[in-house]
Design a protein around this nucleic acid. Structure first.
Lengths: 342, 342
DNA sequence: CCACCTTACTTGACCGTTCAATATCATAAC
DNA sequence: GTTATGATATTGAACGGTCAAGTAAGGTGG
């Protein structure tokens, strides 16, 4: 009935090998000071005895747990987090770490960080697309644990890795302008989200540069349904538009259905641009012109940066901005009745 | 420059409170034997000193880490895992555990389990939809750590939580039969996947019960693109079919595009049924009739079952089969030229 | 007033590692 | 034949908790 037949310890191995426990420790940590012969013997014994070091004990003495933690704050529609944890877990393993994942809301963040501290986590990736917090507050809460935000937060001068939302928006807007569109409607992610906020303001400023202003707008929340609802709302205003910028491919799917239900053809009557370049984007009807975000790159980079930061905590914090690019498909076309773009 | 200003320990608190360290330990663990007055004082001091117990030390003495681990094996298209880790992380936190996530392939499984052992993980959720392993081998590898598989694996008598793939298939097939369809094609997930295998065999047996046999078949791999390719392949056979069963909503999206490209209308020429009931399914053109899997329920149940198993390791292992149900939308319709179903 | 029980608290050992300091020994240098 | 040297191995303390057994003080019953 005894399931756990007590793991052998470093001392058991030492006894069998006829050496002291410290020698075994040296072998475990690949440190010099052990003859090749004993090293080999000890390794063989470890194998035989099915020994494996106790991480808790190691953590206790070294104060490093070889663990990273991904804290997800207030993510409602986690579609874009789809492969994220998988990617990060993989990257973490490659780097010799394990990945802890926790999910919480803004209020719970402090508790999550406390728990991380309690577990002596070596570093934290924070994904909080709608989290507003002062750098100082966050720094205080994380109490010196290296932390990288997986978000585009220009307001922060702490470490973060995000996609350039302003450039992304410029790509979308200028693409439409070059096709001759002048009346542009939009379904940005809710402005509670950092990217929603930045995209919205970037849309206005880029259009402003061209002496234009933004047409009807309704926010979405990342769900397909919200894209549908937002498009309905925009249509209800009765304001004219020849192009629509939608926050995600998923929302674009919803929006296009609403447009179609209103008798509008895409791209003949309305051009649609979205963001993400999910696999979905190739298979909508018509395939979507979209601004590509390479999320897997972002995930990898977060871990990579975090690992650097752990190795060298004195490193000056900086921000890594990933540049998206536009993928043109069939949901956009030049406005026919107007002189084409430059 | 010293970032970590050394955490206070149980003994620091004890000294300040003028009691022994053991008394503080009792307070931490909510155990009796401490007067209300001292308890309060100690709690106040802990708060003030910003003390929090060191998990590594606790783990070392108690041999329980209050950690669960999700091991993802050989998941290529993790779309359906999208919210899984988030859900599980949440459920784990509720139950007082942290969640570790690791990603590997079949060869790496042993190493992943070793690492879990090393970390004294209290329980494991294994998601390996294409993992074929003998119960005995798995039991040996997990060395007594409670383990629950998050897959439909009828071949295993260990603990697992999965959706009844046979029933799911019966729902899809009988729905089509009742609509008068007799020539049914299919794009099941690759038979390397457990659910692919079971769905395929269930389709054949259910049809067999009705004296029918399965039409053209091509496997998909969960990606939208594979649905597209598979449909093309089926069309290329030239074999007639009036209905198509597709493994996931995503693949159905791809498949429907291929059908449309071939000039076929849905559901007028071909009825389509898929599985999952992702949000996507409501927004395809036309909306999909689909077999609903409540993944979040599965995730929760895995954690819940695991926690039970940890509390009572002697518990007899069993399997929890979730029953899916059919959601009828507009991608299926009765075959017009044939006498309707019973 | 003594035995006995409770309640509140203390003590020492231990969990399985790492770290710093120290010992041993063969070999080379002088 | 000392002595320095480097490689190899050992020892004791520490990390921050928990656990089991023990003690001291106060109350109760006979």
């Amino acid at each position: 009935m005894t399931l756990h037949k007590k793991q052998p310890t470093i001392r058991d191995i030492a006894k069998l090998a006829g050496v002291s426990y410290q020698t075994v420790s040296l072998v475990i940590n690949n440190k010099p000071g052990v003859s090749e012969k004993t090293r080999r013997q000890i390794l063989r014994l470890m194998e035989e005895m099915d020994y494996r070091p106790n991480r808790a004990a190691q953590t206790l003495t070294t104060s490093r747990s070889k663990t990273l933690e991904l804290i997800i704050v207030d993510v409602r529609y986690g579609g874009y987090l789809a492969h994220s944890t998988k990617n990060m877990a993989h990257a973490a393993t490659e780097a010799g770490y394990s990945l802890l994942v926790s999910e919480t809301d803004a209020e719970g963040l402090e508790a999550a960080l406390e728990s991380a501290l309690s577990r002596m986590v070596d570093g934290i990736v924070l994904s909080g697309p709608r989290l507003r917090i002062e750098d100082e507050a966050l720094k205080a809460m994380s109490r010196g644990i290296p932390l990288v935000r997986r978000d585009y937060v220009p307001s922060s001068s702490l470490a973060w890795v995000g996609f350039d939302q302003v450039h992304a928006t410029r790509l979308a807007v200028e693409h439409l302008l070059s096709l001759g569109h002048r009346q542009i409607a939009a379904i940005p992610p809710t402005s509670e989200l950092h990217n929603g906020y930045w995209r919205y303001s970037a849309m206005r400023s880029v259009l402003g540069e061209h002496g234009l202003s933004l047409g009807p707008v309704a926010e979405g929340d990342y769900s397909i349904g919200s894209g549908y609802a937002a498009a309905k709302q925009i249509l209800a205003t009765g304001q004219p538009f020849t192009a629509l910028i939608v926050g995600t491919d998923g929302m674009a799917l919803g929006a296009m259905r609403a447009l179609r239900e209103a008798g509008l053809r895409i791209p003949d009557d309305v051009s649609v641009v979205s963001y993400d370049n999910a696999e979905l984007a190739q298979y909508t009807e018509p395939p979507l012109t979209t601004v590509e975000f390479k999320f897997s790159k972002q995930d990898e980079l977060c871990i990579q940066y975090l690992v650097e930061l752990i190795a060298n905590p004195a490193l000056e914090l900086h921000q890594r901005v990933l540049t998206p690019n536009l993928i043109v498909r069939e949901s956009t076309r030049a406005l026919s009745s107007v002189a084409g773009g430059s």
